[in-house]
């Protein structure tokens, strides 16, 4: 009888809930994958600690949600490695009054991370099924400042432009001219470049008047690729 009571006590109090597990994983993710790699912006770190990444990946790989790698979400798309999401968020220098455009909603995770920091997020997804599921997910999670659209991201979102920042996750061989137009003067655009499971650089586009400058950023901590024998 005592043994039964004791085991019940442990069952109620001692076994961590699923939520606790994911909270711990998220905290570990922020500490070891993001902060440890030099992400310093407090708003970004806070957002990454808050947004439940495991709700944005397919159920069958939920347990891998906080791993240090990109994950497939269907339709040939991936949810970026957590560090890349944090890096892209930090690099666009988001502010509480910023209005940000995202091309390629995907799972909606990047939009959710941004929504914690900025005033409005406008996100476009060209694949209908992905767009619908992301919209539903973001609505269920209570995000009021994310506006979604299923459309061709080439045209941007002219009626809501200009934007302080643009994140182009569904990158192509060209940067659509309308997006350059819709970027505010002094605004920043970031585009991850690499194969679906291996992002190698982040391209930062900065607009200052008529001048457009690009910078290839190395998310990997810079170490030269040559060794002396």
């Amino acid at each position: 009888m005592l043994a039964l009571i004791l085991s019940l006590t442990f069952a109620i109090a001692g076994v961590p809930s699923e939520n606790d597990c994911f909270i711990r994983q998220r905290q570990t993710m922020v500490k070891t994958q993001i902060e440890a790699r030099g992400i310093e912006d407090k708003a970004t770190l806070q957002s990454m600690s808050t947004v439940k990444r495991h709700l944005f990946v397919p159920e069958k790989i939920k347990n891998s949600a906080y791993d240090d790698r990109p994950l497939p979400i269907g339709y040939g798309q991936t949810i970026s490695q957590p560090y890349i999401v944090a890096y892209m968020t930090e690099i666009i220098q988001p502010k509480p009054d910023s209005r940000v455009l995202e091309i390629g909603t995907g799972s909606g995770y990047q939009a959710a991370v941004l929504a914690q920091i900025v005033k409005e997020v406008y996100t476009i997804e060209i694949i209908q099924e992905l767009g619908r599921s992301a919209t539903a997910r973001l609505k269920d999670l209570g995000y009021k400042n994310i506006h979604t659209k299923i459309a061709d991201g080439y045209h941007g979102w002219e009626t809501k432009s200009p934007f302080d920042a643009i994140i182009v996750t569904a990158a192509a061989e060209y940067i659509p001219p309308p997006l350059i137009e819709q970027l505010k003067d002094g605004g920043r655009m970031v585009i991850p470049v690499g194969s679906p499971f291996l992002i190698q650089t982040l391209m930062l586009v900065e607009k200052k008047g008529d001048n457009i400058k690009t910078t290839s950023l190395m998310p990997v901590r810079f170490v030269p690729f040559r060794r002396s024998n």
Partner: peptide, 15 residues
Amino acid sequence: LRYAPGLSLNYRKDL
């Protein structure tokens, strides 16, 4: 579907 590999950022017309 469009094609313009490495298009100049000074290009402002439609693709």
